[in-house]
Design a protein around this nucleic acid. Structure first.
Lengths: 211, 211
DNA sequence: TGTACATCAGTGAACGCGCGTTCACTGATGTAC
DNA sequence: TGTACATCAGTGAACGCGCGTTCACTGATGTAC
């Protein structure tokens, strides 16, 4: 892909809106969400500092769009990994966890915008529902996990979903980010999360398949 | 306490260094780590914009000090809650989890500086070791938990410590912050974490005390 | 006890800089007839 | 098919602002004798 400023263009950019979103991603990944400015994005896209105002009210709106895109791609990545619980919910859940970590690692800009940059996710309805759709994948997974348990003593699926979310998010935030805050670990984040989820499932009384 | 700019003072401030740290905490809590500036801190402490340079090289150094203080207080809070595993490791672990959440809730400025503001914790040795001392409390708890298990099939204590950390951190980050990113939940963050840890411990094969 | 002096902490004025934002403008594109 | 016109997207110059930072300075504090 080429969203950079290198190739020549006429007076009209053609797709400045998309280019600005990609500039934001690039700059946030490079310098963090805090150090990214509206003027920066314009410069990166190779347009004048006034041009972005044709597409976004201000920097916050651009950040919100980035977070929105992030949730959409996050949802897609999680759904792809989960694949409706095939071939069995436990193998699929393992993929789901790995996809969560992989997204945090490979898409630090999206991840910051979604969870760290202070974008008010609750306020904007579109953003809120995108976040909920992403969570719905975890919720669906929890449903199938719970359905695989004997009816007596089945835990609430919503709680299980929130627990899985917390484990994945905690592992990703503490150990799985691309940036320098990484700590030395005796095992990879993916192994750490996998072991954690296995212990948790055993604690739920699930008959974990021997693998 | 009174670290504000209200009361009169002479030419010398008396304890500007501490006042600036408190100003940083106050301003980060109000406007987020991103929106806090060196000049802001000076203004809040009631001194000229040049005064902070007598005490800190730049904004980053001040942020690093805030993170350092944060880790120290975090360690103290966790150690107090853990209380060497009294009266039994499981009751103490429950308190530990609650203390983790409470710190994140009540000290958002410290928490951001420590985990979110991009302070390079790995680089500064003092900061790194303060972080490790805080983690050591979790590590010690995991040791006692593991020691309470039958020797056969005992999990590595380090892994257990990392899992507990991830659960607490994930729960705090997603559901337990003071800011507006909170989501509607069927139960409190503390209850959510408690249930999660109980399931996890059961999965480890621990005989959870009936409570 | 008093005086001279060194040290220190904070002043205030100044600077360059980049950001956010507005504005009248202009080049390009599309559409009506 | 061509021409006139409306619409749109990006320009570039300008502005005020607050930040970071430096500097010679000055008021306060402590110490030597």
């Amino acid at each position: 892909m080429s969203w950079g400023r290198d190739e020549p263009r006429g007076y009209h950019h053609g797709n400045l809106r998309e280019a600005l979103i990609h500039a934001a991603l690039e700059l946030i990944a490079q310098k963090g969400a805090a150090g990214f400015t509206f003027a920066d994005a314009a410069r990166f896209a190779g347009v004048s500092p006034a041009a972005p105002y044709r597409h976004f009210r201000d920097r916050d709106e651009l950040m919100a769009i980035v977070a929105l895109r992030g949730f959409e791609q996050f949802e897609a990545a999680l759904a792809r990994a989960w694949d409706d619980g095939r071939p069995d919910p436990f193998a699929a859940l393992d993929r789901l966890g790995k996809a969560y970590l992989e997204f945090a690692r490979a898409q630090p800009a999206f991840y910051s915008a979604m969870f760290e940059a202070g974008v008010p996710v609750g306020a904007d309805p579109a953003l809120r529902s995108a976040g909920e759709r992403a969570f719905a994948v975890l919720r669906g997974a929890a449903d199938k996990i719970c359905a695989a348990m004997p009816p007596a003593g089945r835990p609430p699926a919503l709680m299980v979903a929130l627990h899985i979310w917390a484990m994945a998010h905690g592992t990703a935030s503490l150990f799985g980010r691309g940036d320098g805050a990484r700590r030395a670990l005796p095992m990879s984040p993916a192994e750490l999360l996998e072991a954690q989820v296995l212990v948790y499932l055993r604690g739920l009384g699930v008959k974990t398949p021997q693998r």
